[in-house]
Design a binder for these strands. Structure first.
Length: 986
DNA sequence: ACGAGGTTAATTTTT
DNA sequence: TTAACCTCGT
């Protein structure tokens, strides 16, 4: 069965699409164009999927059709010759923006699903990657390869087709953010890709020049954003309707009869150029001008023709053996416009098209196959001649470039009037010469024989012959397309541990004995030095890996440290060196001593115990507050002593503890408190434990509490085996019992302690460092990195405006999330290296601040994630992290946004809570020093926190940052939108 | 048992 | 402001 298929369309849920793009209008448009199979588009969007489920019904194997009553209504006023069946296939276009091999890649891919169940599985998996509701064409921070993997996991019959593969901004081979080959993009899964969409700006002969594409079926689709554009490119199939047959046709070309195409010159990105200046360049001219706009000197947008030449390994005119046939056409409304001398969208042109459709049949039939006589009868001589010339390739096109469509001219001046006056048309009339720029051309001067092969019937002839328009720009055949896999990290597992260390790091690594105190500011290579110390001493034979203990605070930090230890410490094996957290270590010790498993209560269970034991007359909140007090007390050396002056709390403590022991359970605080009590009580046990470790390392020592410090003292008596590392400026956990005094008084506590300072920061730029210094006061650091942009302090009118401002800036940092923005960005001037979504973070003081920010990012289609929320998340996806400043500790990002730097929020001053100004200051310091490249600090004039309005003044901490270090700017107030809230007069 | 309506309390986080 | 929690009435 012959089917003309348009396999890439969108719904009204995609950005910049027609409001009325629904199934009824798709159905109608398909019939008017002559399409038997149309893609649904956008099936990942919940709104559109609901319409699919509601308005479509299953037809043959994996295909769908509009429900009968809807179909009847939709086609009621169609030309009778156009009525028929339309099938739909589940399809979606995914915009992947991600960093791979140090470059931001932007690819669009089409994914096809064989059933609704498969689509739902796919949607569920992708829902963990990004926000599918924000756009029918979702933007995900997911590599194309991983997208393909997820598609195949959803259903093995699913398939992926790279979309408009040559366009500069968003395609697999694009000049701006693409790859040089499919293997590089899809890696080990490349063999699952068997078709590629060539896009409007290229046609098959251009693609034939790249032999790496020979194995792919080249398909053509409309990428329609409105019903009117449906079917402007399409595929001719001879298959039994069904998903399986469709897939087979694209995979094996069995039943794939070829494509219907735009003339590629009509496409938006055919040539190179700079739209702002009206400069259009062919590849030779681009080369000659060094890729610069001849008018303004900005970089030109490199179009499809140039890109094809870059990757071509064949001269033009070569037709691969199994290439599919194609036909080049011009949309009928454009021909009608030409015939009438009016615009393609005008009422007159529309009426003429309609007349032709009623008399002859669907548009593709009129354009491609209908007898010219019939066209003349229905549409007049000018339209008939226009159709004839298009079929013969006798037309003139000003080629498109830099987002500008090409312009088709069929008739020369006066010709149209002449034709209109004729009743019959004699051949041989040639259009008058046009005077357009050098990249324009006539097809009319082609010999009739060659012109006829415009409509290539795959009879083994030279189908590329007529496309000599770019043959004339062909450079000597370049070498074959280099397709390389990214090099694997093949560094030797354990090279010299001191390699590449600076003076301070080396000192820390080699200092022979403890006690050793290391002051390590942000980005000074703390972890690296820690690992180097272990590796060096193990290699020197001073300790065995089994004798090394490294303690971090969080599981995450411990995990990271473990991985690096495994890579760098000679003889490392799981468990040796022992890399763990305080709690992990304590748990191990408890298990060892008690010889039994230990039951650890979670927060809810703790509350229950407290409630039954000591909760009389307490509300939930009171209970929580009490537990908090007990928890803080348990982090001290002697909890009972700490509570001695609060008899009723002490009583609660005793009853709570009694409850725990009756249950044979412990709480998290006990994981430190119990081992400590044990070691305090038994010098013998203490000695046995400490003798096991010849080297003890403690990370983030500025955050230890009393119990932890005491435990450390047991593990490393007199500090002989002890090295601690930390940064007093980053002590931010006082509220939960941390005592930075242990770091400050380390040297008094352990006599003869040596101190090493890591002074060079490899993370911070001079600008960020300067701003950080203004906040923290005394940090002695040198920035090793080249300078970056200044730290910016941005005032915003409201919290919502602040969120929008951040979204806009992130959009800019990734180099634009759509082609319009991308080209605008290029035009805006210097093009900084784009960053990936995973390299940006928004830091806030309170979790509640995350809401408007996540909303604004979501609205902008930016993949983002609230850190600290248990939400389903695919680790393969790259997302902007939105998190509290606390959660950001120990992490780094290229770009950091610090939101809500205002009086009341920074320092945080909530009613009923004591303000710890010094700790808040350090918190801002921590936030600022997460930035590798740039930091943007924002504050809002209007913000409510927990129903209370803040004063709206910038944080007093910011005053210390000089203007030269951090320029103050103001966010542009958003344009008031119609439909927004009106000011009431009353 | 459930729903309407009133009241209250609201950081930062790890094990 | 908001959401969870409580109380009271049916």
């Amino acid at each position: 069965m012959l089917l003309t298929a348009d396999l890439h369309v969108h719904s009204r849920f995609s950005r910049a699409t027609a409001r009325d793009l629904c199934f009824a209008s798709l159905h109608r448009a398909a019939l008017m164009k002559g399409l038997g199979l149309v893609a649904t588009g956008d099936f990942t969007h919940p709104g559109w999927l609901a319409e699919i489920e509601e308005q479509l019904e299953p037809a043959e194997d994996g295909l769908f059709r509009l429900k009968a009553d809807l179909a009847r209504a939709a086609s009621a006023d169609l030309p009778p010759v156009c009525r028929g069946d339309v099938r739909f296939v589940l399809e979606v276009e995914i915009s992947s923006i991600y960093k791979q091999a140090d470059r931001v890649r932007k690819n669009h891919n089409l994914v096809y699903m064989p059933s609704l169940d498969a689509a739902r599985r796919f949607n569920e998996a992708l829902g963990r990657v990004g926000n599918l509701a924000s756009d029918g064409r979702p933007i995900l921070g997911l590599a194309s390869r991983d997208l393909l993997e997820i598609a195949l996991e959803a259903d093995a019959r699913a398939f992926l087709v790279p979309a408009h593969i040559w366009t500069p901004w968003f395609s697999v081979l694009g000049s701006k953010s693409g790859f040089d080959g499919l293997d590089e993009c899809f890696g080990d899964l490349a063999h699952h890709v068997f078709a590629a969409e060539t896009g409007l700006s290229s046609d098959p002969p251009m693609n034939w020049r790249v032999s790496a594409l020979d194995r792919l079926t080249l398909i053509s689709n409309s990428d329609a954003h409105s019903a009117a554009k449906l079917g402007r490119e399409a595929n001719l199939l001879d298959i039994e309707p069904g998903f399986g047959a469709l897939r087979r046709a694209l995979e094996t070309r069995e039943g794939f009869l070829g494509t219907v195409e735009f003339f590629p010159e009509e496409g938006k990105y055919h040539l190179d150029g700079h739209r702002k200046c009206g400069a259009r360049l062919n590849p030779d001219e681009t080369r000659a001008s060094g890729g610069k706009c001849p008018v303004c000197g900005a970089a030109v947008t490199v179009g499809v023709m140039s890109r094809v030449e870059d990757l071509a390994d064949r001269p033009s005119g070569v037709r691969p053996e199994n290439a599919s046939p194609f036909t080049s056409l011009v949309p009928l409304d454009e021909l009608a416009g030409e015939a009438l001398g009016v615009g393609a969208g005008s009422k007159k042109a529309r009426d003429l098209v309609e007349k032709a459709l009623f008399a002859i049949g669907p548009e593709l039939h009129v354009l491609k196959d209908a007898p010219i006589e019939d066209v003349r009868t229905a549409g007049g001589p000018a339209l008939a001649e226009a159709v004839r010339r298009v079929r013969a390739g006798e037309l003139h096109i000003e080629a498109g470039y830099d987002g500008e469509f090409g312009v088709v001219r069929i008739f020369g001046p006066g010709e149209r009037d002449h034709l209109a006056g004729q009743t019959s048309f004699s051949r041989g009339t040639s259009p008058a010469a046009c005077s357009e720029g050098e990249a324009t051309r006539f097809r009319s001067n082609l010999s009739p024989a060659r012109a006829a092969s415009r409509s290539d019937k795959a009879t083994g002839g030279d189908g590329a012959g007529v496309h000599d328009a770019y043959a004339e720009w062909t450079a000597p055949v370049p070498g074959p397309v280099a397709i390389q896999r990214p090099a694997r990290d093949s560094r030797a597992a354990c090279s010299d541990p001191l390699d590449g260390l600076d003076e301070g790091q080396r000192a820390m690594a080699t200092e022979p004995t403890g006690p050793l105190l290391v002051v390590a500011g942000p980005g000074t290579g703390k972890t690296r030095s820690l690992v180097a110390r272990m590796a060096f001493h193990v290699r020197e034979g001073r300790v065995h890996p089994e004798q090394v203990l490294a303690i971090a605070f969080t599981n995450q930090a411990a995990q990271e440290l473990k991985e690096r230890v495994a890579r760098s410490v000679p003889g490392a094996r799981p468990g040796a060196p022992l890399v763990t957290t305080f709690h992990g270590f304590g748990l191990g010790l408890l298990r060892e001593v008690t010889g039994a498993d230990v039951r650890i209560l979670d927060d809810d269970e703790r509350l229950e115990v407290l409630e039954t034991e000591a909760g009389e007359g307490l509300a939930k909140a009171g209970l929580k507050a009490l537990l908090e007090r007990l928890s803080l007390a348990k982090q001290e050396r002697d909890p009972r002593a700490a509570l001695a002056s609060y008899p009723e709390i002490l009583g609660a403590y005793d009853r709570y503890e009694a409850g725990l022991s009756r249950m044979g359970a412990v709480d998290v605080d006990d994981l430190v408190a119990r081992p400590l009590a044990l070691l305090d009580a038994s010098p013998d046990v203490s000695r046995r434990v400490s003798s096991r470790f010849g080297m003890v390392l403690v990370d983030e020592y500025q955050d230890v509490n009393d119990a932890q410090a005491a435990l450390v003292a047991h593990l490393a008596p007199f500090g002989r085996t002890l090295a601690v590392i930390g940064d007093p400026n980053q002590a931010i956990y006082g509220f939960r019992g941390a005592q930075p005094g242990h770091f400050a008084r380390f040297k008094e506590a352990f006599g003869r302690a040596r101190e090493v300072r890591l002074k060079v920061t490899y993370r911070l730029t001079a600008q960020v460092l300067e701003a950080a210094r203004a906040i923290a006061g005394d940090c002695v650091l040198l920035a090793a990195r080249k300078t970056g942009p200044k730290v910016e302090i941005v005032g915003c009118p409201s919290a919502q405006a602040e969120a929008r401002e951040i979204a806009t800036r992130i959009e800019r940092l990734v180099g634009g999330t759509n082609s319009l923005a991308s080209s605008a960005m290029r035009t805006a001037g210097a093009e900084p290296e784009a960053i990936g979504f995973g390299e940006a973070a928004v830091l806030v003081r309170l979790k509640t601040q995350r809401v408007p920010i996540l909303e604004a990012l979501g609205r902008a289609g930016i993949p983002c994630r609230a850190i600290g929320e248990d939400e389903p998340h695919d680790p393969r996806s790259q997302k902007v992290a939105v998190m509290t400043m606390h959660a950001a500790k120990g992490r780094e990002f290229e770009a950091v946004f610090i939101a809500g730097c205002e009086e009341g929020l920074m320092p945080l001053a909530l009613e009923g809570f004591a303000v710890d100004e010094a700790e808040e200051r350090r918190l801002l310091y921590v936030a600022l020093t997460r930035a590798r490249h740039m930091a943007v600090v924002t504050h809002a004039s209007r913000r409510a926190v927990f129903g209370r309005s803040l004063p709206g003044r910038p944080s007093p901490f910011l005053a210390a940052i000089p203007d030269e270090t951090a320029p103050r700017t103001v966010a542009r107030a958003p344009a008031s939108r119609p439909g927004g809230k009106q000011l009431s007069l009353f």
